[in-house]
């Protein structure tokens, strides 16, 4: 019980600390007035994921521990179908979803490589997320536990201009939601 409370507190802290800069600051003085000097960035302290896990009960996995076990599904260039070599990873995700991660919802994040930075690319990312959703729903995960979002090419894990790098960015990530 203690571990659940602690990890909830840590989660809440992480969630709320992540919110502070997300409210868009609109500058109404757009064209007419002097651009206001920007002050120095507020210093913050971040606790590394490993350190943040205060775990009294080694037998029980925290949300981030389960999340780290979830696979990443990769896709071919300009495609959104799940290839046969990715099926085993989907099965592994379903297995986790039915057991350790049963209490959580999941957000599927669709991503693309840098080829085509337009609406079509965002739709491609979403279709990838949706393909994973259909696959895990077909294997028995409740659709109401799944949310989807597409980040297009705006959330790369690799920024080099190589074939391997682009392949790493054509992916769907699993993110757990409490």
């Amino acid at each position: 019980m203690k571990s659940i409370v602690l990890s909830s507190v840590v989660t809440a802290l992480l969630v709320f600390s992540g919110c502070s800069d997300k409210k868009p600051a609109v500058d109404e003085k757009a064209q007419t007035q002097e651009v206001v000097q920007e002050v120095a960035i507020v210093e913050t302290e971040t606790v590394a994921t490993d350190d943040s896990m205060v775990n009294a009960n080694a037998g029980h996995l925290s949300m981030s521990q389960i999340e780290s076990k979830l696979p990443t599904i990769y896709f071919a260039f300009d495609k959104y179908n799940i290839t046969s070599d990715m099926q085993a990873k989907v099965d592994a995700a379903v297995e986790l979803g039915k057991n350790e991660a049963l209490q959580y919802s999941v957000k599927l994040e669709g991503n693309c490589d840098e080829w085509g930075s337009d609406e079509y690319n965002f739709a491609l990312g979403l279709k990838r997320a949706n393909a994973v959703k259909q696959a895990i729903v077909a294997e028995g995960i409740d659709a109401s536990r799944i949310a989807m979002v597409s980040y297009g090419e705006s959330n790369p894990v690799c920024t080099e201009k190589t074939q391997e790098c682009w392949a790493k960015n054509r992916r769907v990530d699993f993110k757990l939601l409490p």
Partner: peptide
């Protein structure tokens, strides 16, 4: 160039 919205993930 005048940055009118900063912070967060705002596009299109």
């Amino acid at each position: 160039q005048h940055s009118i919205i900063k912070g967060g993930f705002n596009i299109f």
